[in-house]
Write a protein that binds this DNA or RNA. Structure first.
Lengths: 140, 140
DNA sequence: GTATTTGCAAATGATTTGCAGTGCT
DNA sequence: AGCACTGCAAATCATTTGCAAATAC
């Protein structure tokens, strides 16, 4: 369990319980869209407003605490910043799973950083498919 | 120059000039957001409505003619469906450039297709950074 | 000729903003 | 006291929908 108060303070943000609530539900669920965060947080703290969630997502992204996961055909989800990894995204239900980046992608990234005129900062590898659960569901 | 009429008909769509206009500006510019498409198309065909663009983007995506490129921190862009490739995305100006996928990513994809319980269908590799133009601009 | 498609305008949905009130420190 | 943060409501922006008229084939 992460110490959200410390994480926030180290990022230069006040440790309000709204923010800690948001981080907690995101970490518990892995990847969440704004509306999902809102519904989850509301269970603990019904008066926490949607506007506060929007403001804090933007703020925490700018401080590098949260990362956006843009997804084709759906709303973006948000996750805690963590070591580089890939996403497996289910095109049926929208669930996202993390997978460690294979080492070979590091090489690719390094190669490109050198050879391209682009000054690369981050990468995003998303694989789309159908998760186990949805495969089973469709079979029935 | 692609033959858009044929492309559309082969995809089971009528070749209206609205659709051909849309495809033309997307191909010319590579990757475009909805509003950009609208502004560009308006130069040739001012009465083409935004609603028509939305309807056709959705339709042409469902037929596999267009592909969405979701981008962190910006609106999605759309491109013509083409052979698998990566995107270099500029975090300053939003420009997107294509790069061919290095072969090693094919291996990774194949490996994962087998070992994962996910039934993979497509991949999306986005590298974010600062393009040459924006590097120059910032330096000055 | 008929089914599809378009363009408009209205409806909906998502996100942002302004501001007064709260709660730190 | 002073500053940052929250919550509400209004404003804005993005996207979708319904329908009458126009068009592709």
């Amino acid at each position: 369990m992460t110490d959200y108060a410390t994480l926030l303070k180290e990022s230069g943000l006040k440790a309000t319980f709204q923010r800690m609530n948001i981080l907690e539900v995101i970490e518990k669920n892995g990847h969440m869209a704004v509306e999902e965060i809102y519904k989850e947080v509301a269970r603990v703290h019904p008066s926490l407003s949607l506007a506060t969630i929007y403001k804090n997502i933007i703020l925490m992204m700018s401080k590098g605490v949260l990362v956006e996961v843009p997804i084709a055909g759906r709303k973006s989800k948000y996750e805690l910043a963590k070591v580089d990894h890939m996403h497996l995204i289910c095109t049926e239900c929208g669930e996202v799973e993390d997978r460690s980046c294979l080492e070979s992608t590091d090489e690719i990234f390094d190669q490109l950083s050198q050879q391209e005129h682009f000054k690369l900062s981050k990468r995003q590898v998303n694989l789309y498919g159908i998760c186990k659960k949805c495969q089973t569901r469709k079979a029935s």
